[in-house]
Each structure stands twice: as structure tokens, then as C-alpha cells.
Design a protein around this nucleic acid. Sequence first.
DNA 1: GCTAAATGTTGAT
DNA 2: TCAACCTTTAGCT
Length: 267
Amino acid sequence: VPEGHTVHGHARRLAALFGDRRLAVSSPQGRFGTGARLLDGRILRTTTAHGKHLFLGFDDERWLHVHLGLFGTWRFGDGPPPDPRGAVRVALASADAWAHLRGPTACDVLATDEVTAVRNRLGADPLRADADARGAGERLRRSRSSVAVLLMRQDLVAGVGNVYRAESLFRARIDPHLPGRALPESSWNALWSDLVTLMRDGLRRGRIVTTRPQHRTRRSGIARGEDAYYVYRRAGLACRICGTAVRAEPLGGRTLYHCPGCQVSSG
DNA sequence: GCTAAATGTTGAT
DNA sequence: TCAACCTTTAGCT
């Protein structure tokens, strides 16, 4: 269930399993038949992630482009592939590894210039070394939209989803309703830097954990549910810092979580 | 075992 | 602004 860190993890895993290997590419479900025929038998050369988009570069300048959306999942493994579970859109297989993709929003074969076009529409990715954090901040601080809306815009900040939005704004004590243009540059710098920290940690762990140990309910380990978060999915519960009830409100078709006690605009 | 909601995006209205 | 895409999981029973 993917924000950017998940997709970067998939890129790494696919590189380890399949890098420089000749792959059998098939479409058990049938919907990707044309694309599978284009890629079948080619060698995987490059795997890269930008935000929530995954790009697998094959011989002959052909790329498999995948966006998981809300429902998409990868399953990977060593050894012989298991029977496909559910509707497998793409199956990859080398001599000693397999991967199954189900339920993606986007799954197409692109030429190199089309990959560039997709990537040109994406903003700064906190998990990429080439991210233009300053440029993203300048654009964000020119907007009248709220910081909450802006953080979800993939053409500004690529890879941040609803969890990282809620949690990073809480950790910075920023009111999500604050217009981008009212966010001081220093606050943007701190927010960006925290996103880098959080998302790198998420990539390493394979899950999102934003709470500091002293703010967790349990002494050891991090429970599967809300213990890992300050505000995400904690509507009505007491804020871990100030005790105010965490608020959930619909915003652009998504649920925004925040603490009205801690996240107060000063301007 | 069932239901509802979900970490996302696109395209139609 | 909303439906569609389509799978997993949490929270019930």
C-alpha cells in the first residue's frame, strides 16, 4: 500500500532479483498482452523510482512504467513462481526469480522520451538525490492553496501521500490550512528535511513510523495500528503531545488528519 | 466470514 | 465534484 518509499523499495528489490537478467514477461490476466509481447525476452538494465512511479528499463529503449494507485501490489520471490493469485496483470520471470503485479492504476510500455515526459511532470522526490527542494519550495510559497493540498500535489513534491502529509505537518506543528504563500522559507526547509528523514526511515523499515519512542503507547515494539502515527487515522483520540482530540476532515476527496491544539498558524 | 475503508490517479460531469 | 479502477486490511461478527 504505497507511498513513495514503498515504490523505491520495489525498485531496489526488482533490481536485486532481475538486474541484467533476461526476463520472460507475460500477462496472465490478458489486459497487458500487447505490452508483454514487446518486453518478453529482453534484458532488464535499469530500475528507478520517481515519486510513486516505477520505471523498469529494458534493452532497446523500452520501459515498463507502473503506478500502483491505491490498490496495486507487487509480490516477489526466489525460485519457481507460485500459482498466480487473483488477476495478475504482469508476470516477470528469470531463471531463478519471479514477480507478480496486480491491480495497478498505470501499467504501460514507454519509449525513453515518454519516460522523460512523465518524469518532467513530477516534482521533487525526497528519496532522490537529484531532488530540487529549493525549486519545490519556491513554487509552493507562491501558491494560495493550503499546505495540505500542496503537499499532495505530485508535480510539486513527488512521493508524499496522505500518511506522510499528515505526519510531517504534525511533526513540524504546521497548520495544514495555512496557505503555501504564508509558509516561511525556514519552515519549508525544516519540513523538507523531515520528509527526507521520514521517508528514508520508511524505506529502510518497509513501513511508515513517525512517532518518537517516548510518544508511543507501548514500551517495546511498534504496534501495527495507530501507535506508529501522531495523527493519521487517529480521529477523536487524544493527541500524544497536548491531549486535544485529533480531527479528521475531508479535503479534496481525501481525509486530512491534524491536531488543532498543536498545529496552529501563527500568522 | 463479511463489510467498509484505505497510504492514488484519471477522466467524465 | 465524483465515479471508476480493483486489492488489502482492520474491525466486526
